[in-house]
Write a protein that binds this DNA or RNA. Structure first.
Lengths: 356, 356
DNA sequence: ATGAAAGCGCTAACAC
DNA sequence: GTGTTAGCGCTTTCAT
C-alpha cells in the first residue's frame, strides 16, 4: 500500500517502466493513447515521481541552492514587537536575495533550496544543500572557505557579497567602497560637515572594512584627517551595538562628531533610538547614516540616509552565473561588481522626497 | 575523474562503503582513527554525499517545501522604481511565510525548497516540489485541488490561508472575517462613519469573501444597511485596480462614501494615490483601510490603517504541523485559525503612534 | 513506439 | 566496530 512507483503504474497500465518514464520526461515520444493510459493509472494510484530517484539516475536535480548566514538581529525582532507591528518591517538582505534568486531560478526552470547556516557545524549545512542541488550561491562567511574549496570541485558555486576568497569561483560583490565614499563626500561637501565618525565592524569583516576604506578615501579627498581605524568597532553590528556605539561617542571627551556613519543600517537605527533617548536631535545636532538600504531605514524617523545595495539583483545575477556555468563548466571564472546608490533621506539633513 | 562516491572514498581509506556511510550518518559509531582516515580521503577526493542517493535509499529528504503563487504586483514594482527605491519596500506575503518556514524548518533540521507557481502547467510545479520533499505547504489556489488530492496521498501537505479545500489535510487560515469585522466596527463606532464602501475581489476568492462577510456582520451589528455584494469587485486586486475602483466610486452618483474598505492593502495603496490625484483628502474627506499589513502600508502617506495578518507565524505553524504529521501520519487532521489584529494608522483618522 | 536490463550512489539489515 | 549484500525508484542505452 506504500508509495506507488513506476512499476506499479507500468503494471496497471500494461506498459513497461520505460514507457512510464517517457510519459513524464518526453510525452511526445509516446503514442497518445498509451500516454493517456499511463497518466490515468498514475492518477488512480496517486503516483508522484521521486525526485531522489530521478536525481540519482539523471545526475541532476533541477534545483539551485542558497546558503546564507542566520542574520537574525534579536533587537530588530524585539523592536518590532515593541512597536506593535509584527516583523513585517524587518526584511534582511537574505530575504531580498532569496526573492531575486527564486524569480531568476524559476525563469530558468529551477526550484530554489534555501538554508541558513546553523551553529551546529557547517558540515550539516553544506551537506544539506550541496548534495541536493546542481549548483548554489553562498553569502560571504557562511561556509568555511576550505569546505567551499572541496565542494566547488564538484559543482558550481558562486560567492556573494564578500571578497573573492577562492579565485576560481564565480563571484559577485557590491561596490562598498564606492558607496561609502560617495555618501561621505555628500556629508562633507553638501552638508559642510567635517568631524565625522565611522563605526565599523571587526577587522575580518570585508564589507565593513571596504566601507571604511571608502570613508577614508573621501576624507582624504576632502583634505580632512584620515583616521587609521574606525572610531568604534563592534562585533555583531546589531541595533544594540549601534546604540552602545553612539552613546560611547557621545560620552567621549572633546567635541562630538557632527556625523556618525555606521557600517550598516541596523546599527544606525539603533543609534537613532539611543540619540533620541539622550535628547540629541538628528539631523540638527548630528547627522546619522547607515549602509544597506533595509526597509526599516525608511520607516524610522528621521528616515535613514544610507547606501542602497541591489540585493535582489544580486540574487538574479547569481542564478544567471550558475546557469551559465552549468552550461559550460570550463568557462573563465567571472567576477561582477554591482553598483550601489546613495539614498539621501532625513537623517543627514536632506529633506525626504515628497511622500509616496 | 568524475564525481567521487562512497566507493572511491572507501577504497582510498581502506574501509568498506558502509563505514564511509556511517562516518557521515553516525560518526560516533566509528572508531576515531577510522573516521579520520575516511574524512581525510573524502577531503582529498572532494567527496560530497549525494542527496539524491541518500534520499532514495533512506526514503526521506530532510527537506520541506513551499508552493506559492507568483503574486508579483506589476504596479508595486513600477511604483517602487518610480519612487527611486528598489523593491526593498515591496515585501509580499510569500516572503514572510518563507521567512517563517525557513526558521522553523531549520530548527527542526530541515531545509526549505521553494517554488512559485509557473504559468506553464502546475504539473511541473508539483513535480518539482512534491517529489523532492518530505512534506510541503501550499498557499491557497496555487496548486489545483485535484492534484493536491493525489499528492497528499503520498506525503504530508498543509494548506495555507484559504478555505479548507480538502478536509483530510492539515490546514491553517487567518481570521479574515473577525479582522474585517473589528476594523469596520472601529470605523463605525470610533470614527462615527456610516456610509462605508467595501471593495472586494472575485467571488471565488475565499479570503476576499470572508473579509466581506466580516464587513457585513459589522454593518448589521451597527444597524446599518447590509449590502448584498461589494460596492465594487475587481479581479487581480492590484494597485491599479484599487485606484480604478476608488475613482469609480467617486464618479458614482449620489453621496460619496465616508470610508473605503479594500479587500487588501495593495488596492488601498493604489486608492490612496488615486484620491490624492483627485484632490480628495485622506482621512479628512474619506477614510481608507486595507487588509494584510504589508510593509508598504506603513510607508505610504497617510499610513494605511489595516488588519495585520501573522504571515510569518503562519509559516512557522505550517512547519510544525508538517513535522508533527511526519511523526504520526495517522493523527487527526488539524485546522488552525490564526488571530489577526487591527493596525490603526493615519488613513482612518487615527493619529499614528509616536514615531519609532 | 516500446521493452529489457544495467546501473546511478547511498542506506540498512544482518553477519562477523 | 566493520564488512556484505540488497535494494531504493528512476533514466537510459540498446534492441526490437
Amino acid at each position: 500500500m506504500s508509495t506507488p512507483t513506476v512499476y506499479d503504474v507500468a503494471q496497471r497500465s500494461g506498459v513497461s517502466i520505460a514507457t512510464v518514464s517517457r510519459v513524464y520526461r518526453n510525452p511526445d515520444s509516446v503514442r497518445d493513447q498509451t500516454r493517456d493510459r499511463v497518466l490515468e493509472a498514475a492518477r488512480e494510484l496517486g503516483y508522484v515521481p521521486s525526485g531522489s530517484a530521478r536525481g540519482l539516475a539523471s545526475r541532476s536535480t533541477g534545483v539551485l541552492g542558497l546558503c546564507f548566514p542566520d542574520y537574525a538581529d534579536p533587537d530588530a525582532e524585539a523592536d518590532g514587537a515593541d512597536a506593535e507591528d509584527d516583523d513585517s518591517a524587518v526584511m534582511l538582505y537574505s530575504d531580498q536575495i532569496i526573492r531575486g534568486m527564486e524569480r531568476a531560478a524559476r525563469r530558468h526552470g529551477y526550484a530554489l533550496l534555501i538554508a541558513a547556516s546553523l551553529d551546529g557545524g557547517p558540515q550539516s549545512l553544506v551537506e544539506q544543500v550541496a548534495g541536493r542541488v546542481d549548483g548554489f550561491a553562498v553569502l560571504a562567511r557562511t561556509v568555511p572557505t576550505e569546505d567551499l574549496e572541496v565542494i566547488s570541485r564538484r559543482l558550481p558555486v558562486v560567492m556573494l557579497a564578500g571578497p573573492r576568497e577562492i579565485d576560481h569561483l564565480d563571484h559577485i560583490e557590491v561596490a562598498n567602497a564606492d558607496g561609502e565614499r560617495e555618501l561621505t563626500r555628500h556629508l562633507i561637501e553638501d552638508h559642510g560637515l567635517r568631524r565625522l565618525a565611522f563605526i565599523g565592524g571587526e577587522e575580518d569583516s570585508p564589507d565593513a572594512e571596504a566601507r571604511f576604506g571608502g570613508f577614508r578615501e573621501a576624507c582624504r579627498a576632502a583634505g580632512l584627517a584620515v583616521p587609521d581605524r574606525p572610531a568604534v568597532r563592534v562585533t555583531m553590528m546589531t541595533q544594540a551595538e549601534g546604540a552602545a556605539a553612539a552613546e560611547a561617542l557621545l560620552d567621549r571627551e572633546g567635541e562630538h562628531p557632527q556625523a556618525m556613519l555606521f557600517a550598516n543600517d541596523q546599527m544606525a537605527v539603533g543609534a537613532l533610538h539611543a540619540l533620541e533617548r539622550r535628547g540629541v536631535r538628528v539631523p540638527e545636532d548630528i547627522a546619522v547614516a547607515g549602509f544597506d538600504g533595509i526597509p526599516l531605514g525608511r520607516i524610522v524617523r528621521p528616515a535613514l540616509t544610507t547606501v542602497r545595495q541591489p540585493m535582489r539583483r544580486l540574487g538574479e545575477e547569481a542564478v544567471d552565473l550558475l546557469v551559465q556555468r552549468l552550461r559550460d563548466r570550463d568557462r573563465e571564472p567571472v567576477s561582477l561588481m554591482l553598483p550601489v546608490s546613495v539614498a539621501r533621506r532625513a537623517s543627514c539633513g536632506c529633506t525626504p522626497p515628497a511622500g509616496a
